[in-house]
Simulated assay, not measured.
Amino acid sequence: MTADSIKTAVSNKQPALVQHFKKVIAKHELAHAYLFAGESGIGKDELATWIAMRLFCLNVEANEPCGKCQECRRISTGQHPDVVIVKPDGQSIKVDQVRFLKAEFTKSAVEGNQKIFIISDAEKMTAGAANSLLKFIEEPSPNVTAFLLTTNKNLMLPTIISRTEVVELKPLVPEQFKAQLREKQVTPSLIAMAVNLTNSVVEVETWLKDDWLSQVQSELARWFLMSFKKDMRAFIEVQAKLLTLAKTKDEQQLILDIVMLYCREALILKVNPQSERLSFPNQDKEITAQLPTKTTSALLLATQKALEAKNLLNRNVSFQNVLETLTIRLCQVY
């Protein structure tokens, strides 16, 4: 990203935190270590980079980095010697990477009196790496600020959490998330579904690989509409189509999440068809056509059965058994 695009992104995603850190920096009250926690795509990296740009910018304007000077440009491209970024090497951040970081901590700043360290995916530090980092956090060096970025604060060592200032980043509002997905050229029907499943662009991109999410959407639409019409051929669809799309536990859980959305969709269309959080615009007409024959209590019960199915999967009941049993129950309830 360019320096200007970082400024724009962080202002759009986390405007309140931008204002907060403007005041903190102006008062020279920046802490020695922060833990930025929140889902992927909500602005953690951009916020840490923006703070670094603000600290090093040669032409601060209205308490903001200019985004055009040499310092801003070098930081935005990861080329500033006093802004060190560590990312996972493979699946984890290893102890050697943290040792390198600690060695950098002890050096004087190359071009000024400030050093910034940004550790992305900090929850992926090995136990050795996390323990190695702990000493710096416990005994901070002057004019050194560390930013640890994580999507899962619960995976961080409690001792690290207790010695950092934790900043919980707010999720993107739906329109921001939709805009990001549109930039990735995700289709409108998939966007409508995705915004009710996650707030992470990275997660959606993973689901889109090899056209997987589109296939799931298509096959589940067919299966659900059969179940909704009490068509027991939906039972055959489980083994013929759906099992082939659910090879991992994560994929199985996501499929059941989408099933829950379908059950929820029918209920919403019954009680509030003008809702702005509908997930399946391409199927809503068919669902609505069947609603006169469905009671609200039946729709509520179907949603409950979908929730029970997810709980069964979490108790290690086989996905095939879970989905086949749910198919029978939905056909009975509807």
Rank of each mutant, 00 (worst) to 15 (best):
S11Q: 15
N12S: 11
K13F: 11
P15Y: 03
A16E: 14
L17V: 02
V18D: 02
Q19T: 12
Q19H: 13
H20T: 13
F21I: 09
F21A: 03
F21W: 13
F21H: 04
K22H: 07
K23D: 12
V24L: 06
V24H: 09
V24I: 15
I25V: 15
A26L: 08
A26Q: 14
A26P: 02
K27W: 04
H28M: 07
A31M: 10
H32F: 00
Y34S: 05
Y34R: 08
L35D: 03
L35N: 05
F36T: 08
F36A: 06
F36C: 03
G38D: 06
G38W: 02
G41A: 04
I42D: 02
I42L: 06
I42A: 07
K44E: 09
L47T: 03
T49M: 04
T49R: 11
T49D: 03
A52P: 08
M53N: 05
R54M: 05
R54H: 13
L55F: 01
L58F: 01
L58E: 15
V60D: 12
V60Q: 15
E61S: 12
E61R: 10
A62V: 08
N63A: 12
N63Q: 15
N63E: 15
E64T: 10
C66N: 07
G67R: 12
G67C: 08
G67I: 08
K68P: 00
C69G: 09
Q70L: 10
Q70F: 06
E71Q: 14
R74I: 01
R74E: 14
I75Q: 06
S76L: 03
Q79N: 14
Q79C: 08
H80E: 03
D82I: 01
D82C: 01
V84A: 01
V84C: 07
I85S: 11
K87T: 14
K87Q: 14
K87G: 01
D89S: 06
Q91C: 00
S92D: 13
I93E: 01
I93L: 06
K94C: 05
K94R: 15
K94L: 11
K94Y: 04
V95S: 01
Q97L: 01
V98K: 02
F100Q: 14
F100D: 15
K102V: 13
A103Y: 12
A103Q: 15
E104C: 00
E104A: 11
K107D: 02
G112W: 10
N113T: 12
K115V: 07
K115I: 08
I116Y: 09
I116E: 07
F117T: 03
F117G: 01
F117D: 00
I118S: 04
I118A: 04
I119G: 05
S120N: 14
D121N: 12
D121V: 01
D121Y: 06
A122G: 07
E123C: 07
E123G: 04
G128V: 07
G128N: 15
S132A: 15
L134H: 07
K135A: 08
F136P: 00
F136R: 06
I137L: 14
I137E: 11
E139Y: 07
E139T: 04
P140L: 01
P142L: 09
P142T: 12
